[in-house]
Design a protein around this nucleic acid. Sequence first.
DNA 1: CTGGGGACGGGGCCC
DNA 2: AGGGCCCCGTCCCCA
Length: 353
Amino acid sequence: MRDVLKGAQLLGIQCVADACRDILGETGDAPTDAVEEAEPLPSRRKQDRCSVSPARPVCRRSEDIHGYEGHPPPAAGVLMNGGGTWLQEATPIPRRPEDTPSEEEESGLQGRATPHHSQSQLADGGGGGVTAVSGRKRKSQTPQQCPVCQKIIHGAGKLPRHMRTHTGEKPFQCTACGVRFTRNDKLKIHMRKHTGERPYPCPSCPARFLHSYDLKNHLSLHSGDRPFECPLCHKAFAREDHLQRHRKGHSCLELRPRRPRRTPGPAPSSDSPPPESFSLHQQHAEHMAGLLEGPGLPLRIPYPELLWRAVAVAGPMGKDGGSSPHGGSTITRNTYKEEEEEEEEEEEEQEEE
DNA sequence: CTGGGGACGGGGCCC
DNA sequence: AGGGCCCCGTCCCCA
Ligand SMILES: [Zn+2]
Ligand SMILES: [Zn+2]
Ligand SMILES: [Zn+2]
Ligand SMILES: [Zn+2]
């Protein structure tokens, strides 16, 4: 165990070292002479992620961890296993042939869209949907289990990349500004800010973008699309994570305890609480009343060009260089879905976690 | 609040 | 097999 501790310190894997000290009954912060490179990254992310610090590596959701039910990770067992070469010890997860892969069924295969001619692929649902005729989606072969956090990592060469999330190592440095990255593809994206390269042109206007996601975002400007709709209150969002925030938080009208809301004057003659379905329909009607007044709301942005964020003009390292993985629209329009024909059944009981 | 920008990390495909 | 390259979901933070 001391050897493991020493190794963990050398590698700068704090959580393993902590676990070892835990087992050894030491509290000590023995001077870790190793890697000051892995200094506390000023990550703004919450620390409950699978990250360096905690003695017991914790992932944000239990399903992230394979067979990890709140016990401390079997650090000793795993690490001792290979007698020092545990990094290679990442055993391929034996796939039982009979099981339909239950745990982490990936939801969509992703088409490959090369920059410079990515219009068609990005035009709609992105990676989703298109089940190529070429056969079933190949399960990613050789899933491996991280010896530190027990997480299953799919993909042949992906474990080293994942391990860097524990060590904090950032091997890739920008030659122009010195910023370091944990992944080379992130460095490559970053370099576009220096070179001014904008590999993603809009097919219907001259705008060009740094990221495919910026283009996607821009395309939704053209279409005015808000694909993500709350099933309860029918508010529509341009970004999926905003919908999730809406659903988790208390901002969904339907989840609110039915605020008094200037109750309609003539109080019901007696104590007759409105039926359960009342609030939804009532509030929905309020939405519509409030938002539908006015002519036919054409939903098409007349001049999306005015909303470009892309600025073909902007030179290298222009202002924010912003780009983000969000489909989305910046236009303000009716955020409530038009009443489509179907009008989803309101009995769609959504189980909150 | 809400929308938007950015960071992070996983997965798929290909070489 | 390893890794480049890309797409994507999800989170945090800020205006
Ligand atoms: Zn891990
Ligand atoms: Zn740079
Ligand atoms: Zn355009
Ligand atoms: Zn809602």
